[in-house]
């Protein structure tokens, strides 16, 4: 564990808390992509299968259970409140996730991490590719609506920050731990890059106290 990884995990936990707080405080799931949340649940299921295979640390196991639990809890809450959005979710959450699923599966089958062709390893690789693009339905939705509640915006920012910190962690581990995972690094760069436009708007608008509106 190093400081970057710890900050990454904390940003990830913060993003989940912000999302749940947004739903609670506005009593609405308007502006939140159900598809993105469903993809994250699938990411955690396919990645954390190893929780049954080996033990890393109490921290590791607890966080895996936390991420799995909160992702399904979020889906449950969103489903319950599905009619509370001012705009019906199905008219705006229209990103075609089939392409993300098929693309991620194809990449995992062609380039499994460490070239180990086991079911668990292919699913692990799939989860990394899928996570790298899982935010797209959410960003697509944001672009269509053009504006968002501040908690939603903070949620997306914390989520983007999380993988950005992981990239720093991987650079650190390459030099100081003699450890490197090409799959993690490449997907992490893609994931962080997808947020780059969003980060810029966040900096320009939110940090300067203006309402979040896309130009």
């Amino acid at each position: 564990m190093n400081i970057f990884r710890f900050l990454a995990d904390m940003s990830h936990v913060l993003s989940i808390l912000l999302l749940l707080q947004k739903i609670r405080s506005s009593n609405s799931v308007a502006g939140i992509s159900f598809k993105t949340q469903a993809l994250y649940a699938l990411v955690f299921v396919t990645r954390y299968l190893d929780v049954f295979i080996y033990f890393v640390s109490i921290y590791n196991t607890a966080m895996k259970i936390l991420f799995l639990g909160t992702s399904f809890y979020t889906l449950h809450v969103m489903y319950k409140k599905r009619d509370s959005g001012t705009i019906a979710a199905n008219t705006i959450d229209t990103f075609r996730v089939e392409f993300l699923l098929i693309g991620s599966l194809a990449l995992a089958l062609i380039f499994p991490s460490e070239r180990i062709y086991s079911v668990t390893n292919i699913l692990w690789t799939f989860s990394l590719w899928l996570e790298s693009v899982a935010i797209l339905p959410q960003l697509f939705m944001l672009q269509r609506t053009g504006q968002a509640e501040s908690l939603t915006v903070h949620y997306i920012f914390a989520l983007g920050l999380y993988r950005g910190f992981y990239v720093l962690n991987w650079i650190y581990r390459y030099y100081f731990d003699n450890w490197f995972s090409l799959t993690s690094f490449v997907t992490g760069i893609i994931q962080t890059a997808l947020y780059s436009d969003f980060f810029w708007v966040y900096y320009q608008k939110v940090l300067k106290g203006k309402k979040f509106e896309l130009p």
Partner: peptide, 10 residues
């Protein structure tokens, strides 16, 4: 099935 390398990150 070949062994899975231990993955310690989340």
């Amino acid at each position: 099935e070949p062994p899975l390398p231990k993955k310690d990150e989340l």
